[in-house]
Design a binder for these strands. Structure first.
Lengths: 224, 224
DNA sequence: CGGCATCCGTGACGATACTG
DNA sequence: CAGTATCGTCACGGATGCCG
């Protein structure tokens, strides 16, 4: 057992970095924010991580109460890793990091790996920023590279997931990665992107209206 | 020159971690948020970092536009490091990390180092959370271990600094480290701490009133 | 003395091979 | 499928030396 390397500082930031400051840890959290994952899936979506490091990080995260391992019921003889509530609380950390990283345009290098759900975090931030407070709903996002869905306004709950929305979404977005990156970086507004046809937005509920910048219904019908 | 280790992922979070994910980097940013620092001061306030790693990180941060090196005018034949605007933009990242790390109480280990200004970040978050939006002012914080000051509501500007406030502060706080940690962790409210005498709050401006939970200026000053 | 560069021992990391 | 074992390499931490 590794005695846990620490900065040994009486500082909440340093203590946070003791837990999630190691290489790969926050990226594993990013993956698990999309929902429970098997070891092999994690390994496939984190190109470059070695098997032993991945196993080691997952053990550390279990020990630190960030993630748990769960055996799936018999038909599937597999186990999945998922975030604990404490682990999901790292969402603001990833949002802050992602927001900072998105501020510099950064074209895509040919060696860069890509996964569709990596855009979920920036898009979630964008949508929750553009829609007013209290808005919530399910958004399905379609890119050439894949489909995922976002739970807008879920707060502490699950943030997003891979694949199509589990029910009829309140909003559907079609766009490409480059547009998505520019939206996240702030040098393109959602309204402008829709006008230019770079984003196709479909949906009729309150969330869709809020994103289109329309005024809310005169008498808000006591929505919860 | 090291060709810069990267996760090689087309993801803003991963790119952020390419720049600030290395060991010690974010803690150096935390130090520089308190203002310009000399190499030796950084080394003294970051126990455990080796000299070459510190030098290497500072070079990386310069290359990445996070920090700059500046020679002081002749009388002081020294140079200081300071954050660029891009580096100061990391404040929300440190806030998110610190907030997450403060959520677990965590008593102080005897081996833990302590610096007074490490409490600036949590206190700043607490004050900006308790006072309403738009409040701003200068706060001087006194602990047994040292004195520092906070620029509340400065937003992107300088967040805090070591030592006494450079002018008469709008608010003065006296407290001890343990109380500060509990305030940051959320298991003690500022009001309660003042009532219990664990925090002495002095000041008469709008900021002080806002923190005391009083109604804003319209109300007459009928207190004590 | 401040600001590193160098050297060295240890541990973390990355790639591959192997096993229940 | 889900890791463990092995190994070469590199990053880190500590000490010391150099140079202005």
């Amino acid at each position: 057992m590794s005695p846990r390397r620490s900065y040994d500082q009486h500082c909440s930031t340093a203590r946070a970095l003791d837990a999630v400051g190691d290489r790969w840890t926050l990226l594993i959290v990013r993956e698990l924010l999309a929902g429970p994952r098997r070891y092999t899936d994690l390994h496939a979506d984190l190109p470059g991580v070695s098997t032993d490091v991945l196993a080691s990080r997952l053990k550390d995260m279990e020990r630190d109460g960030i993630a748990t391992r769960r055996r799936l019921p018999p038909p599937a003889a597999a186990s999945v890793y998922e975030l604990t509530p404490r682990g999901r609380d790292l969402l603001p950390v990833l949002q802050a990091l992602g927001g900072w990283g998105a501020a510099v345009p950064a074209e895509r290098s040919p060696t860069d790996a890509v996964r569709a759900h990596w855009l979920a975090l920036p898009l979630l931030r964008l949508i929750e920023g553009n829609a007013g407070r209290g808005q919530q709903g399910l958004v399905e996002v379609r890119l050439d590279e894949g489909v995922f869905h976002l739970w807008v306004g879920a707060g502490e709950g699950a943030a997003y997931g891979d694949g199509a929305a589990p029910r009829e979404p309140d909003l559907r977005l079609d766009l490409d990665m480059d547009t998505c990156a520019r939206l996240g970086g702030g040098d393109l507004t959602l309204d402008q992107a829709v006008l230019d046809g770079m984003v196709v937005m479909a949906g009729e509920g309150a969330l869709a209206d809020a994103l289109r910048g329309r005024p809310l219904p005169a008498a808000p019908t006591s929505a919860s």
